[in-house]
Design a protein around this nucleic acid. Structure first.
Length: 191
DNA sequence: ACACGGATACTA
DNA sequence: AGTATCCGTGTC
């Protein structure tokens, strides 16, 4: 594995920020992570653990780096990674990728969408990579068909408010690669 | 603008 | 078993 063992053993906000610029590849498809969100089991009403006992069980039972995959709105699989062992536990939601690997396969799975729109959303990217409920619980760090490579240069990262949630909506826990054209939603205005 | 769709966790 | 809610997307 190219990711160091302690990568997911930190607080989820730090982890979400540092995942920007990493290249995520699963079964030969993937790209550079350009958008993430952090969710914390502490004081974050938007985290699944706030309302779901099964999610709290997942955090307790599973190791850092485990994929937390669930169906949203009855339509889209959403990919998160379990972060635990640091100051607080939580999840990182992968929201957008800049496609780099397996673009042909991803285009087929996404029914011919242009590369710009292939992975520009949390539901789009799982569809593109072929990730579904069968991936729930798989560990990114130990799965031989998965890899997470660190960026060679430190990326320019901007914090924004999270997208599409109603509770704890003001937390600046969405992270984007500055200037990327592969985001699900434009970044907040810089000030 | 709105339809689409199912798992989860409530109420009882 | 019935209902409310949910971290979205494509097409209208």
């Amino acid at each position: 594995m190219s990711t160091r063992d302690g990568f997911f053993k930190r607080d989820p906000v730090t982890c979400a920020r540092e995942m920007i610029g990493c290249e995520l590849v699963w079964n030969g498809s993937g790209g550079v992570i350009v958008e993430t969100e952090a969710y914390s089991v502490r004081n974050d009403e938007a985290c699944h653990t706030f309302t779901r006992p099964s999610s709290r069980g997942f955090v307790k039972r599973m190791p850092a780096g485990a994929a937390y995959v669930y169906l949203n709105y009855g339509v889209h699989w959403l990919l998160n990674f379990l972060v635990k062992g640091g100051s607080e536990d939580g999840f990182v939601l992968i929201r957008a990728l800049e496609p780099t690997c397996g673009i042909q396969e991803m285009t087929l799975r996404r029914n011919g969408t242009t590369p710009k729109n292939l992975c520009s959303g949390p539901g789009k990217l799982t569809r593109a990579l072929g990730i579904d409920g069968a991936f729930h619980g798989r560990n990114l760090l130990s799965d031989p068909s998965a890899s997470l490579r660190h960026p060679s240069a430190t990326p320019n990262v901007q914090a924004c408010t999270r997208v599409g949630i109603t509770r704890s909506a003001d937390f600046p826990w969405r992270f984007v690669a500055v200037g990327s054209r592969f985001l699900s939603v434009p970044a907040d205005r810089q000030r």
